[in-house]
Design a binder for these strands. Structure first.
Lengths: 123, 123
DNA sequence: CCATTATTTCAACATTCATTGAGATATTGA
DNA sequence: TCAATATCTCAATGAATGTTGAAATAATGG
């Protein structure tokens, strides 16, 4: 996913809050299956109201997504959105010399552009 | 650089502001040589006071660094800090199955751990 | 249909954050 | 040393954001 500045700003804003950052990390660790809202709220020690507020915020920012499963609403990390964020931050890194900028992650983000993304990258 | 939660929170907070996000990207693009404060301020259309405030904020957050060069203060991106941020966000991705999470950048961030960082990664 | 469980919505309040302009500090060349 | 350049500091103002608790909505099983 190719982010532009306003979206990236929203995403970073969403990650700049303790409860939300914890939520995202928990969901990243949980993987694609995700977790119900209640469990996430408990895991980060937030009231149901506060958890709902922050989950909605993260979803608006494109960092997580939700689906209903009977009574529960299951949230899961949006890995496309997360990698898009990394890509945005490092776009045009070092005027086209990514290897100068960062030893690992960023070089990868550069070398594994959307084109190469689907077919596993050299990594 | 291995970030912990409070540092990561500061870093994301620093990136969640339009002027600062632009500053970081300009410095990422500028590479290790960096740019003087005044030029950065102009590039993002901020008053000297505002530019100084935001540059200080970014430096406190570990995303940029500064050095004096005669009359100017030269700021440059802190690529260690930036890659640490990516690493923090994706740490323990998918309970140890990074390939499930993200096609490219994150897998790379996982596969190119600090150990392999120095000697160029497979990317 | 009713009681229960799961989650969201809303409004009020407190706090945090960015902006501004004036003035302070630091460095250099004449 | 003086004037000019580059940057930073400070205090005041106004805007944006998180928290809370109560009430609304949605889905299920008996």
């Amino acid at each position: 996913m190719k982010l532009e500045e306003p979206q990236a700003l929203n995403a970073f804003g969403a990650l700049s809050q303790e409860t939300r950052l914890r939520m995202v990390r928990i969901l990243v660790q949980a993987g694609p299956e995700g977790m119900p809202a209640g469990a996430i709220g408990e895991a980060v020690d937030a009231s149901s109201s506060s958890a709902s507020f922050h989950l909605a915020h993260l979803e608006r920012a494109g960092l997580i997504q939700s689906r209903r499963e009977s009574r529960s609403i299951i949230y899961s990390a949006n890995f496309e959105g997360l990698s898009g964020l990394v890509e945005f931050l490092m776009r045009d890194c070092c005027s086209g010399h990514p290897e100068v900028c960062m030893p690992a992650a960023v070089v990868a983000a550069e070398c594994c552009t959307p084109a190469t993304k689907e077919s596993a990258c050299a990594c």
